Structures are given as structure tokens and as C-alpha cells.
Amino acid sequence: MIDLSNTSSMPEDEEEDNLGPRKGLAGFLGTIAVLGFFGNSLVVLAVVLYPKLRTITNVYLTSLACSDILLSLTIPWLIVGLVSPQGWPLSDESCILVAIVRFTCSGSSVWHLVAIGFNRMILITTSSETYRKIYSRANTAIILMVTWLIPFTVIIVPYAIGATELGYDDGPHLCSDIEDRPDGTENLLHTYIAGTFLTCIPLFIVLCVYLRIYVHVRLHVRKQNAWSSGHQKQQQQQQNNAVATVSSTVQDPGLTEKQIKEGTKSSERFSENNAGGAGDQSKAAHENKTKNPTAATNKPPAKKGNDLETRITKNTFYVVVGFLLCVVPYGICVLNRFGPDGTPLGQGFLLFNVCMNPIIYGTKHPHFRAAIRNIFMGRVSGPLATSNSVGPVSQTQGTA
């Protein structure tokens, strides 16, 4: 049984003064919970309704949305402890469960960003055959399991062996890890472990992965520009040779009339080929690709800056940037103890991430934007529903 007289060292009037800011933060967290739950549910619904969205990358995005949904469901329980003037009003076991789910979902969100980053890097920097071998159904399931198992292990193992303690923390008035020991010392083991394995390491990996993607895309664009410049010079040289052939044909009196006509026809054919435009070049490129796959592979493709896969990769990187914009203010508030006393202001910034991802998908992702628009307009079938299979995506189209 909890001794309410010892749950807090604050005087009663000071506790009531802090209750006002805590209620304001509770209202903000309640708004986040509603937006996060319905927004991420909309993302999951879009993947369920539109088979074209069932790509390998979107499997991880859907799992990330499920993690944010669970985290949204823990926020009302956090609000209960936040606005209660007498501590946690329910059983200790329920508070421990809320803390475990909250830490697991928060850590899983970060490791999902790692999985998504690796998926985009392998898709863009390797061949389609390599991509399909790595992201088979079995491997995809294993990677998903790991993204959930790492944060759960980081939380549950130290608690199970008694190295850390979970429950209601009177300082921030949340179901969290308890740092204050009965002897007055602090136990920061959970803070160090969670900060290392659930924040620093995964975010460092994510930044390295997207830096690798950026370098690859930049090199690809340079090669494309160099190839285009060389191709233009080759066309100009062919044109000059044709003009020189016609000039020498006309000026040489020793040539027969038949040779003169052949030289003129050669020049005309070259002019017609140049006037054919992009359509003839595209047709020739297609025929060359069919007859000689190796030569077609050596030819640089279209610029990655305008490629759909690069656009999707940029949007997934926006998710990483959004998380950083939430975790940096959280770290500043925690380390410098900003905000009213007893008010976990940093949690407001950190939990805002649960409703940020659907906003990014709905405004930036080309496929999700169309799917969400169709859902709001009541169209559950349309141009997005093109396939009923779930499998490795195409190297160029990114669909199953």
C-alpha cells in the first residue's frame, strides 16, 4: 500500500501550483494521442486497401505506424499520472506495464528508421537481383522482429535482473524508470543503456546510411552529366563528318554521279535521324536493351534526382529529420531541466513524433498522398490498386 505522505517532498500548496502546468501539458499530450492514433491508423488502412503500397519499404513504414499507434495508446495512461495530485491511482503493475510499452515503442521507432534506411540504401546502390535476395519474405520478417526485440530487451533484461526499477516516478509524474534509490543515491543505468542503444547508436547508423545514399546519388548524377556531354560531342562529330563528306563529294570532279548521290543521301539520312527527336531515341534505346542487355546496363539511366525511388528515399529521410527535431528539444529539456517544476516538458516534444510521421506521408510521399486522398473521398479502389501480390519491389518502380 502506498504511503501518500511520503510520495512527494513538495509542500501541498507547491504541488497544487505545479498541477496547472501539468494539466496544460496533459491537454497537449491528449491532442497528440488523438492525432497520432488516427493518423497512423490511416497509414495502415492505406496499405491494407491499396495493394500497390505493399512494398518492402512500406512494410517497415506500416510497422513503424503500428509502433506509434501503441505509443499513442499509452499517452492517456501517462495523463492519468500527470494530472493526479496524489500519485499513481492504479496498481503498480499497470504503471510498470505502461512504462515497458512506452520505452519499447519509442526505441522500436528509432530502430525502424535504421531498417528503412538500410532498405533504401540497398535498393538504390545495388542491383535488383541483390535486393530481392536480401529482402526475401523470411529476411524481411526477421528484420522486423529485430527492430522490436532490441528495445524490448534493453528495457526488460535490466529490470528482470534487478539492475533497474520501473514504476511511477514522482519527479516527472510519469510511469517511467525510477532513478532515486531508497538510500538517496541515483541509479542512472537505465538512462545510459536506453540513451546508448535506443538513441545514439541507431541515429548514428541512420545518418551514415543516408550519407552513403547521398554520395551514391551525387556520383550517379555526375556520371549521367558526363555521359550526356560525351553523347552530344559524338553527335556533333558525326554531323561534322557528314558535312565534310558532302563537301568533298561535291568538290571532287573525279567522282561519278552515283557516288555524289550516295553521299547526299547519307547526309540526308543523318539529318533525318537527328530530327527524329526523343521518340526515335527512346525506341532505339529499347531495341538496344532487348538485343544487348549489357550495353543497356552500361548506359546511364535517367537522373536520380527525378527518379521515384529517390523521391521516396527523400521522404523517408524527412521522417528521420522529424524525429531529430523532436528528440533534440527533449534532450535539452532533460539535461537542463527546462520547464515548470514537476512537469515533464521534454516528453511533449518527444511524443509529438507519433503524429508527425502521418503528416509527412500525407504531404510528401507520392503514393501515400494519393491513397489518403482517395480514402477521404470515399474511393477504396482506384489507380493505386494494381497488384494483389506482396513481394520484393522492382528496382525501378518500387512496387510489389
Score class of each variant (00 low, 15 high):
Ile360Lys: 06
Ile360Phe: 07
Gln395Val: 02
Thr386Asp: 09
Gln395Cys: 02
Gly378Asp: 05
Thr396Pro: 00
Pro366Gln: 10
Ala385Thr: 13
Leu384Glu: 08
Ser389Arg: 14
Pro392Gln: 01
Gly378Ser: 05
Thr396Tyr: 10
Val390Tyr: 14
Ser381Lys: 15
Thr363Gly: 07
Phe368Ser: 08
Val380Trp: 11
Ser389Cys: 03
Thr363Lys: 13
Gly362Pro: 07
Ile360Arg: 06
Arg373Lys: 15
His367Asn: 06
Pro366Ser: 12
Tyr361Glu: 06
Arg379Asn: 08
Ser389Asp: 13
Ala371His: 03
Ala370Glu: 10
His365Glu: 09
Ile360Gly: 06
Pro383Arg: 12
Ser394Tyr: 06
Gly391Ala: 08
Pro383Asp: 14
Pro392Gly: 12
Val393Pro: 00
Ile359Asn: 02
Ile360Trp: 05
Ile359Gly: 02
Thr363Met: 07
Thr386Gly: 12
Ala385Ser: 15
Gly378Asn: 10
Ser381Gln: 11
Tyr361His: 14
Pro366Cys: 13
Ser387Ala: 07
His365Arg: 08
Gly382Lys: 03
Gly382Thr: 03
Ile372Tyr: 03
Gln395Thr: 01
Ile372Ala: 08
Ala371Val: 03
Gly362Ser: 14
Thr363Asp: 03
Phe376Leu: 13
Ile372Trp: 05
Thr363Ala: 08
Ala371Met: 05
Thr386Leu: 09
His365Met: 07
Ile372Cys: 06
Gly362Arg: 05
Ser389Pro: 00
Lys364Tyr: 05
Gly378Phe: 10
Ile360Pro: 04
Pro366Ala: 11
Pro366Glu: 12
Ser394Arg: 10
Pro366Trp: 12
Ile375Thr: 02
Phe376Tyr: 08
Gly382Trp: 04
Pro366Ile: 13
Arg373Thr: 13
Ala385Val: 00
Thr386Lys: 14
Ser387Ile: 10
Ile359Lys: 03
Ile359Cys: 08
Pro366His: 11
Thr396Leu: 07
His365Ser: 14
Ser381Arg: 15
Lys364Gly: 00
Thr396Ala: 08
Ala370Asp: 09
Gly382Asp: 02
Phe368Val: 05
Asn388Leu: 03
Ile359Tyr: 13
Gln395Gly: 15
Gly391Ser: 13
Phe376Pro: 01
His365Pro: 05
Lys364Ser: 08
Tyr361Ala: 11
Met377Ala: 10
Ile360Thr: 09
Lys364Met: 11
Lys364Asn: 09
His367Met: 11
Ile360His: 05
Ile360Ser: 04
Thr396Lys: 09
Ser387Asp: 13
Pro366Met: 11
Gly391Asn: 07
Ile375Ala: 03
Ala371Thr: 07
Ile375Leu: 14
